[in-house]
Amino acid sequence: MFLECQNINFRYPNGSMDVFHDLSFQMKTPGFHALFGPSGVGKTSLARIIVGDFNDYSGVVRSEGMQNLLYSYNLERLPDWSSVGKHLEKITPPSLRDRKNELIASFDMAETMRLRFSQLSLGQQNRVNLIRYLLQDFHLLIMDESLANVDERTREKIILGIKDMFPDTYFLYISHNVIEVSKFCREILVFRNSLKAPQVITVNGQDHKLGQTVSKDKLEQTMLEIMHAS
């Protein structure tokens, strides 16, 4: 199971500039990876090319051994006609009931299950949205700023929880937080200006896991590498 993009060229319909020019990268091992870069460099576009939402590109996307690729983003909403608890219940396959409860607990969301989506804070909304994706059958989940508005401690708890629960699954985490991606991600795809070649550089992160400690020096080293790359 691996993900590979080869010589991707893409520009928006009616756009005058290429978003991607001969963009290539590989991700050969499952785990928590990241797409990192400033706004507007094409992180979301690449995500949507990977899951097959955009077809108007040239080049090759290979997702060997992956059938279900999902893309989730932080503005998604759940319908307000019933409580988030009921919504989660409805979209959870019977085999994953326990996992649902586990996720709710590890995301600190038990208290909110009786509420409607609009009654939640922005951070809670993003968490509940992420939970429902994690309850689907997938091999790759792209999380586009899915933990925006969630406080740092909870975010850490959630990411470590996900990594622990899904050790053999691919995650692509889109974030602007350099410390976070350096600390938790295995491979970090750093986006550069479209005029630079190569357009993305892969930096190895610290891939911090539950029960481990992170060396401050190594973390700083990764962060420096990311800065240099971009």
Partner: peptide, 11 residues
């Protein structure tokens, strides 16, 4: 923003 989830999960 609401329909996306149901679409990508085939629901």
């Amino acid at each position: 923003d609401i329909e996306h989830f149901y679409r990508v999960t085939g629901r």
